[in-house]
């Protein structure tokens, strides 16, 4: 059972200019997407830069005004409420940002940083608050003397764990993680990802994991959304996307992941080049006459692909087959 739904979410930015700074055009950053979230699952949102994936995350949590659409949280419409500071929605849905350094206030000690959501939502006595902060530090595996330190005294991985601790402070149901590990080194990345999985198991959290790293997404996520130009082009379980991708764009994305072995790289490069040609030739078929990506059509129970109709879907699949995606 899903506890949260996003229905036909749209975020459009006006482009102003010309006479009296009137609105000349719109940027369709997010253009009608539907999502639903179940408790304890991890959802991946993948796409190239500028496709609207971060905007989606920000719009859901209320950092971005939405143009139209609805967000339902446990059956209630929270579309308006979510922008108010003290709403329950804010307590239950938290966010982690990509840049762990700039998302921590450099003038505050760690104790105060972690206390902020507690003070906003939980109304504890100072002693309880201090105990709570201690617990949080313990969960994320930092020593107790970290309380008195400032953000710059920590390494990148530790800072990201502090961010996670802050997100956990109010016992949320869901955490939106916007590229949480893409600024981290490989070994630290492994640490943070493992840790995120641990916390998830412990608290039954739901993650919306926004990333462009397909390796990380595969490791973390149950359901994956592939986003392109503000719309979803494919949605499915990990197996659907990585084993049986249908949309041309998804295939291209998968074919450009660098393999982790140098064996056969010349062959891969040739295949990639060939596929690129097919892609250039075929990609216009992914849009309708208004230049929008088609709506999603179900292929199986879990697997949805954007296509004009079920028959044409098969056609696109067949022709791009020769591109040889891995």
């Amino acid at each position: 059972m899903s506890f949260m739904q996003v229905i036909d979410l749209k975020v459009h930015y006006p482009i102003r200019g010309g006479f009296f700074n009137t609105i000349v055009d719109w940027v369709y950053a997010v253009d009608g997407i539907d999502m639903e979230f179940e408790q304890g699952k991890t959802y991946g949102l993948v796409g190239e830069s500028g496709c609207g994936k971060s905007t989606t995350g920000k719009a859901i949590i209320g950092l971005e005004k939405i143009t139209s659409g609805k967000i339902l949280f446990e059956g209630e419409d929270v579309t308006r409420e979510r922008r108010s500071r003290t709403s329950r929605f804010h307590r239950e849905v938290q966010m982690i940002f990509q840049d762990s350094h700039s998302s921590l206030n450099p003038r505050k000690r760690i104790a105060d940083i972690l206390a902020e959501p507690i003070r906003n939502f939980l109304h504890l006595t100072p002693r309880e608050e201090s105990r709570k902060i201690g617990e949080l530090l313990e969960i994320v595996g930092l020593p107790q003397d970290a309380k008195e330190k400032y953000p710059h005294e920590f390494s990148g991985g530790q800072k990201q764990r502090i961010n996670i601790a802050r997100a956990l402070a109010t016992h949320p149901k869901m955490i939106i993680a916007d590229e949480p590990v893409s600024a981290l080194d490989l070994s630290v990345q492994a640490q943070v990802l493992n840790f995120m999985k641990d916390v998830q198991r412990e608290f039954g959290l739901t993650y919306l994991f926004i990333s462009h790293d397909l390796g990380v997404v595969k490791h973390m996520c149950d359901t994956i959304f592939i986003m392109y130009k503000g719309r979803f082009v494919e949605r499915g379980t990990k197996e659907d996307i990585y084993g049986n991708s249908k949309h041309l764009y998804t295939k291209r994305l998968l074919s450009s992941i660098p393999a982790t072995t140098p064996v056969g790289r010349e062959k891969r490069k040739r295949a990639r080049k060939e596929f690129e040609k097919v892609y250039e030739k075929m990609i216009h078929k992914a849009f309708d006459q208004n230049g929008r990506v088609y709506d999603l059509i179900p292929v199986s129970d879990t697997h949805y692909v954007s296509a004009p109709s079920a028959r044409e879907l098969l056609e696109i699949g067949k022709e791009s087959e020769m591109g040889g995606s891995r």
């Binding site: 390494s155 991985g157 070994s187 999985k197 397909l214 595969k218």
Partner: peptide, 23 residues
């Protein structure tokens, strides 16, 4: 070797990633 080990592999089924201890 540890570095290779901590890489999320596209084809592996391991639940956990390997972590290099310390900093």
């Amino acid at each position: 070797r540890l570095l290779f080990h901590s890489m999320p592999q596209l084809h592996s089924k391991d639940e956990r990633l390997h972590v290099i201890e310390g900093t």
